[in-house]
Design a protein around this nucleic acid. Structure first.
Length: 434
RNA sequence: GCCCGGGUGGUGUAGUGGCCCAUCAUACGACCCUGUCACGGUCGUGACGCGGGUUCAAAUCCCGCCUCGGGCGCCA
């Protein structure tokens, strides 16, 4: 198919072969128009029935929507055509005929529910808006990688099949590993720390995480893409700086390189890169501001985790991305370091979009004694994490890092209603296929 | 895990006890139409998630199951 021309590249005056899907056929009687769609756009094919090969016209007029065809003919300038050019066909080949009844309508004359769309993702991605989300997602990941490289971080890949969980917190998917009990990893946390403790120093990973929580919300997935950073000789302030850089780089790249996709999503006008620096609110200030909004029935007190309603009230109040820092030590995991001068305060931070939490991070506990105490305080057996704690005996530098929900980044960036829109084949409480 | 709300032609919907052998759009089939661009016109095919119950009468009320979505908790 070397000689195939994208519909967007077809130039008047040349003979070209275009190939794609039958988007629509408008048969006006003596003349008919076939709208052919490919990844680059659409082009009109004109059929003048009295003047063209009878068999070709018959084949063309008999095509069902979404059939795949290849058309060769002269490309002509034509002001009456939708793109100002049209193809006058010499030959037409049907590469794959489609059933006449489609499970969803790629021309978008009729809506489809998310569930129907996910069951028929291939057809769903023939819609401009469907394609646009994943073009943008790809750009977000490209830009994030570039920003990490600019921050001297090395891309790594850590195991997804593990012997023990990471933090004890969320539920894990159990699997059988050659007769041994094993789990799907919920986070690269421990492994990226082990690499940050090497000469590699600064690492990032973009990969899947698995969480077996039976939640059923528009912002949770059981298989998600985590964008992780960990850097040796970094404190939580440095980690927040990198976080901000990566998120802003993603927005900037999308604004610059995804104009068409943003237009397809009707976001071209409204799209804005968040302003930096993101405000950094101490936890204490955050609960005070939430209380001051009066949105909550009960006032928050020191030590409370932030309820969803409170996060939203604060998000509306702040109006953009922001960090919450200096959490009470007791509600952050054991591997997060506490402040030197106040053990009740953690160096843990969250980065928030007004709609939801995007990032969780902090400076890590690199002192082995304290780390082991932390395991015990959280009811975990340090013995089970020997592979991890052992390395803290051989020179573990101070280090910090964070994890960013990739789908949440795309979802909030594009103002999607449901996080499943940002995953090709989402895994949720009830969906295991396709 | 707890709680709430849905499931009607291929798709998206109207219908909350009789007006329904079920509305509308789109798709599909047939016919007409030489510049459409949501092409238009005429005609036609096609559906009440499953099982049980209440009632003279059930898409509509009740129970169970299946299935989808949402809220909370928790989190990325």
């Amino acid at each position: 198919m070397d000689d195939r021309t994208y519909t967007a590249d077809a130039e008047p005056g040349e003979t070209a072969t275009v190939a794609g899907w039958v988007h629509e056929i408008r048969d006006l009687g003596g003349i008919a128009f076939l709208i052919l769609r490919d990844t680059s756009g659409r082009i009109q094919i004109k059929f003048e029935k009295e003047e063209m090969d009878e068999a070709m016209v018959e084949t063309g007029m008999g095509l069902s929507r979404e059939s795949v065809v290849s058309v060769t003919g002269e490309v002509k300038e034509e002001p009456r055509a939708p793109t100002d050019v049209e193809v006058v066909p010499d030959s037409l080949e049907v590469l794959s005929a489609a059933d006449t009844e489609l499970p969803l309508d790629p021309t978008e004359k009729v809506d489809a529910e998310l569930s129907t769309r996910l069951d028929n993702r291939t057809l769903d991605l023939r819609r401009e808006a469907g394609q646009a989300i994943f073009e943008i997602r790809s750009e977000v990941l490209r830009a994030a990688r570039e920003a990490f490289r600019a921050a001297d971080a090395t891309e790594i890949n850590t195991p997804k099949i593990v012997a023990t969980g990471t933090e004890g917190g969320t539920e894990l998917f159990p699997i059988t590993y050659f007769g041994q009990e094993a789990f799907m990893n919920q986070s690269p946390q421990l492994f990226k720390q082990l690499v940050a403790g090497s000469n590699v120093e600064r690492v990032f990973e973009i990969g899947p995480i698995f969480r077996a929580e039976e939640h059923n919300t528009p912002r949770h997935l059981n298989e998600a893409t985590s964008i992780d950073f960990e850097g040796a000789f970094c404190d939580h302030h440095d980690a927040m700086d990198v976080c901000e850089q990566v998120v802003v780089a993603a927005y900037e790249a999308v604004a610059e390189n995804c104009e068409e996709a943003l237009e397809a999503l009707e976001l071209a006008e409204a799209f804005e890169t968040p302003e930096t620096p993101f405000p950094r609110l101490a936890y204490e200030e955050a609960i005070e501001r939430i209380n001051a909004t009066g949105e909550l029935d009960e006032q928050l007190v020191w030590g409370d985790d932030l309820p969803t309603e409170g996060e939203k009230a604060l998000g509306d109040d702040v109006g953009g991305h922001y960090f919450i820092t200096d959490w009470p030590a007791e509600i952050k995991p054991f591997y997060i370091m506490d402040h030197d001068d106040d053990e009740t305060l953690s160096t843990g931070f969250d980065m928030m979009h007004p709609r939801m939490e995007l990032v969780s991070g902090g400076q890590r506990e690199h002192r082995r004694e304290q780390l082991i105490e932390g395991f015990e305080a959280q009811g975990l057996d340090p013995e089970a994490f020997e592979y991890y704690t052992k390395m803290f005996k051989y020179g573990m530098p101070p280090h910090a890092g964070w994890g960013l929900g990739g789908e949440r980044l795309v979802m909030t960036m594009l103002d999607l209603d449901n996080i499943r829109e940002a995953v090709l084949f989402p895994r949720d409480r009830q969906r295991l296929s396709p």
